[in-house]
Design a binder for these strands. Structure first.
Lengths: 198, 198
DNA sequence: TGTAGCCTAACAACTGTTCGTTTGCGAGCG
DNA sequence: CGCTCGCAAACGAACAGTTGTTAGGCTACA
């Protein structure tokens, strides 16, 4: 079925995605050439196009599945019947657990979608907004039920949460001394301390 | 002294920096070519090199002066003799005021330094760490004096503040309905609510 | 007249992608 | 069991365009 590349390792689309994630994450999408990618995979530049349709579409795939994995992990928590504070804690834990499993992909997901062209950028933005809306719902529901202190523009709170999680992509290290849950709880502590009415 | 370009406007290094900030901020440093920049300025590509030494050095200049303007605005506040809470509020206000005056430059400053080569990146990182250290001092002093509740790893708090301010670069609009001070106070409210011991 | 600042032209290297060809594995048949 | 055939996946080579940068000459102002 599949011909062998130099090192004897089989080359699949998944393998290409892995290397692309690593390279895009480390140095940035625009500065990585198809020759860099092909070299990392172990085939010639043109051979990549047996697996992908274009460089940009490769990025789109990485970004879309990247955010989707966060949404899939967080949405069940939002739909659960829990006090808002617990809901936020569990959502943050879910986020940090996914991040723990794919830091590099998340780096691409959160920071490189801007290099998508005018056709694909809206697609990525739509999924990103879906992710953000999960936190909007948690905060809005918490305020509506009186569990969270009302705020003038609570959208700002959501932006701050998203900002913290986005930046966590840059400083979180999976092998660090703190577990995903510890970090999540520390963030929760910080955010909720400023939210709770009691 | 200076020959006139097409539109009769004099071309200066400052003018080039302005256009570079706009373009780098809107589309990203690596995807902006010197021909894009020269077109925006109104001269031929090669003529840019009468004013700059290289594309990368141009970026370095933008990044360095960009962060420095934040440091210059915040440091006096840190050195003042104020309660930690007030100090943090004023530091955040100072930050947001500078951001208000240079959103695009800050976007380049906070997000594009990664495209500097191995020679110049450390320089930019050093200045960035100096900026972050200002907030570290505020938080650390506040904890030491008992004004802020002690935390297991307070470095995380600083990272969250930096993360919020970094993300503000993306959503803050100078012409928006909220003033820099209002936004700063909202951030302060959120952060301190989780910090204060009383 | 000197010189700062612009011009045109070109450089070598690199960009993403396409082309026709070759390779080698797995399935099907005798 | 061995042989042939189809086809996915690789190859080498080339494409047209773009990259940052340099060189040498012209021009207008001090």
């Amino acid at each position: 079925m599949a011909r062998r590349s130099n090192n004897g390792q089989a080359v699949s689309l998944e393998r290409i995605k892995q290397e692309a994630i690593r390279l895009f994450g480390e140095r940035g999408y625009p500065v990585i050439g198809m020759r860099d990618l092909s070299e990392a995979v172990g085939i010639r530049p043109g051979s990549l196009y047996s697996h992908i349709s274009s460089k940009e579409h490769l990025l789109l795939g990485i970004v879309e599945t990247g955010i989707t994995s966060f949404i899939d992990a967080i949405r069940p928590v939002v739909d659960e019947d829990l006090p808002a504070e617990e809901k936020l804690r569990e959502a943050l834990r879910a986020h940090m657990r996914v991040l723990d499993g794919q830091v590099e992909q998340t780096r691409v997901t959160f920071h490189q979608w801007q290099y998508l062209g005018p056709v694909n950028r809206p697609k990525a933005l739509a999924v990103r907004e879906e992710w953000e809306s999960l936190f909007t719902r948690i905060v809005a529901d918490g305020i509506a039920s009186g569990e969270f202190r009302p705020r003038e523009h609570f959208r700002l709170t959501v932006l701050m949460i998203a900002g913290i999680l986005g930046s966590a992509t840059e400083w979180y290290r999976p092998s660090g001394r703190s577990s995903p849950e510890e970090i999540a709880d520390a963030i929760h502590d910080q955010i909720v301390g400023g939210l709770t009415s009691g």
